[in-house]
Structure formats: structure tokens, C-alpha cells
């Protein structure tokens, strides 16, 4: 039983990642054959194709993989430490901070100077919101309910601030901000790619290794405090690591909803609650799901590119309805 789970996670899923990766490189506005893709990865073919693959599709697909993995893992960790299966990477107000920062960049005109200001501002926004939620939770000794409540409050405060800015600014900057809000991989600067990959990957590795400690936290109650663990300190560290992963991905790709909520749910059905296997499983599943959605978003209404956030949210929404009815039947 256990072996089967490990087989699925460590063998089947990496194969699927590679398949989705190649599929993602193959699909786009320029038609090309499967062999062209393979050849261009190996380095010998038509220069045009190499340029498209290497400079556009490859970074984009990598970014989609790493973002999907990061969001799924941080969602899974938030669900475990908050002991709430409705939590996701954005429950604790991260989205509010990110949107606030990014919209500030658009509205103030910083975004028109250089696009680098968008991720920078949104990152600063996230750090601000995480800091506030952290301080509020610290006051309540990192009680899950207090953390969720402070996250929700911060989200509201920031989104009101965003609404205020929208109502005071010209419509062209609002449109650009709206597109960013929906989440997209089309504006990625590939120079940041190594940084993002490094940060998110190390975060995922830390969280995967902490699986057993996360288990103890979601065990909850008084018992978790009597098995020699400093629960409060562990929650602090996990909260910071998971927030940081989300912060980095959100700053570059915008708010991509539902990945962090639905992937942990699906994987929990497949490999169960134990976080030591669940977290790597979520990482792989996120790295399969998001490039797939991104490819769909490019292909479905080609040549129009629709934001990937729209695709994930539609699929996520349908999945959620399904989950709701299924669990009702179980009762």
C-alpha cells in the first residue's frame, strides 16, 4: 500500500511532468513538430524555432512548473498548520498585499518606467502584509483561528485600498493592473528565472523535509505540545517559508487562484494525509497542473492569450462544486 503511493509520486508524476513540459513547448502560435522541439532542446535545428523555444516557451513553462509546485506546496502547508482544509496560500492576506503593491506600481506610473517595478512593488506589498499578519498572530500565540482572522482582515483592508486607488486613477492603468490581477506567465522576465527557481525550490525542499513536524502540528490539541516539540516556533518558521514561496511566485505571475487550494485536496485523496509524502506529491502535481493550464490558456482561444488564472479558477471552481457534492453524499 505504502509502496504503491511512493511509486505514484516518485515515478509516475515526474514522468507526467516531463510529458506536460514537452507538450507545453510544442503548443503555441507557431506550429512546429514534436521532433523540432526535441532537436531544438538538443541544439541543432532552424534558428527561428530555437529562438521561440529557448527564449519564450522554455522560460514560460519552467516558470509555470515552479509556480504550480510552489503554490500547491504552500497551500498544503497552510492547510496543515491552520488545520483548515479551506486554507490556501492566500488565506493569510498575501494576495491583498501583492495586489496592493502591484496596483501601486501601475497607478503611480512606476510600471511604465521599467516593468521590474511590478514584481518589486508587489513583493514589498506581500512582505508588508505577511509582517502585519505575523505580528497579529504572535499576539495570539499563533492560534490557527486568530491567524486566519487576521489574514482575512488584512486582505479586506488592502483590497479596499486597491479599490480606492482604482477609483482615483485613469482607466488605462486600471486595465493593465486588471490583467496582472488575473495572473499570467506572459510578462515574465527570464533574467529572474534562476532566482525564482532557486528560492521556490529550496522552500519546497525545506517544507518536504519538515513533513513529520507539520504532521505533529496538524495533530493539534494538547498532545502536540507534549511530545517534545516547540509547536509555536515550528509554526512560525513554516509560516515564513510558505509565505516566502508564495510571495516570490505571486510577485512575478500575479494571483493564480485555486492551485493552492485544489491540488492539496486532490493529492490528499490519492496519497492521504501524511505530509511527508503529501508535500512532494503536491509539488509534482502543481508542476503538472499549472503548465497544462497555461498551455490550454494559450491554445484554447489562439491567437488570443487568456490569463492562466482564468483557466485554473474555472477548473478549480468546477472541482470544488464536485468536492462539495461528493462529501455531502458521504455523510
Amino acid at each position: 500500500m505504502i509502496n504503491k503511493k511512493y511509486l505514484i509520486v516518485y515515478l509516475l508524476m515526474p514522468v507526467l511532468i516531463i510529458a506536460v513540459f514537452l507538450f507545453s513547448l510544442l503548443i503555441g502560435s507557431n506550429e512546429m513538430s514534436f521532433f523540432d522541439v526535441i532537436k531544438s532542446l538538443l541544439g541543432n535545428t532552424d534558428e527561428n524555432i530555437v529562438a521561440i523555444i529557448k527564449n519564450i516557451r522554455f522560460p514560460r513553462t519552467i516558470m509555470a512548473c515552479i509556480t504550480g509546485a510552489g503554490l500547491a506546496v504552500s497551500g498544503c502547508v497552510f492547510q496543515a498548520i491552520l488545520k483548515n482544509s479551506l486554507a490556501d496560500p492566500f488565506t493569510l492576506g498575501i494576495s491583498g498585499g501583492a495586489v496592493f503593491g502591484a496596483v501601486t506600481a501601475f497607478v503611480s506610473g512606476l510600471a511604465t518606467i521599467t516593468s521590474f517595478f511590478i514584481p518589486l512593488c508587489s513583493f514589498v506589498g506581500v512582505i508588508l502584509s505577511v509582517l502585519i499578519v505575523y505580528l497579529l498572530s504572535m499576539y495570539k500565540k499563533f492560534d490557527p483561528n486568530a491567524m486566519i482572522l487576521s489574514g482575512v482582515v488584512i486582505s479586506y483592508v488592502f483590497s479596499s485600498a486597491v479599490m480606492l486607488m482604482f477609483s482615483l486613477s485613469p482607466s488605462y492603468s486600471i486595465h493593465a493592473a486588471f490583467v496582472w490581477l488575473m495572473g499570467s506567465f506572459s510578462m515574465i522576465d527570464e533574467r529572474f528565472l534562476p532566482f525564482v527557481v532557486f528560492v521556490v525550490l529550496s522552500g519546497i525542499i525545506i517544507l518536504s523535509l519538515s513533513g513529520n513536524i507539520i504532521n505533529a502540528i496538524s495533530l493539534g490539541g494538547e498532545k502536540s505540545k507534549t511530545i517534545g516539540l516547540n509547536i509555536e516556533r515550528s509554526i512560525k518558521i513554516l509560516f515564513i517559508v510558505a509565505s516566502f514561496i508564495t510571495a516570490v511566485t505571486v510577485s512575478f505571475c500575479g494571483i493564480i487562484g485555486f492551485v493552492g487550494l485544489m491540488i492539496p485536496h486532490i493529492m490528499r485523496k490519492i496519497v492521504d494525509t501524511n505530509n511527508i509524502i503529501l508535500i512532494p506529491a503536491c509539488a509534482f502535481a502543481g508542476a503538472i497542473f499549472l503548465p497544462l493550464c497555461d498551455t490550454l490558456s494559450r491554445a484554447l482561444f489562439a491567437p488570443v492569450l487568456i490569463p492562466v488564472g482564468v483557466i485554473t479558477s474555472i477548473i478549480g471552481g468546477l472541482f470544488f462544486v464536485f468536492l462539495l457534492f461528493k462529501s455531502e453524499r458521504n455523510i
Partner: peptide, 22 residues
Amino acid sequence: SQHIDISMPFTVSEFVMFGRYP
């Protein structure tokens, strides 16, 4: 304690294993 948190249900052997954490 008398109360078990079952929001994230573990299997019995995983549950017993928590006792080995120290």
C-alpha cells in the same frame, strides 16, 4: 487528552508514531 482533533485524520500507526517524537 480526551479530545482527538480529526480535521486531518491520520492512520492508527501514524498516530501512535507521534509518541516516538521525543
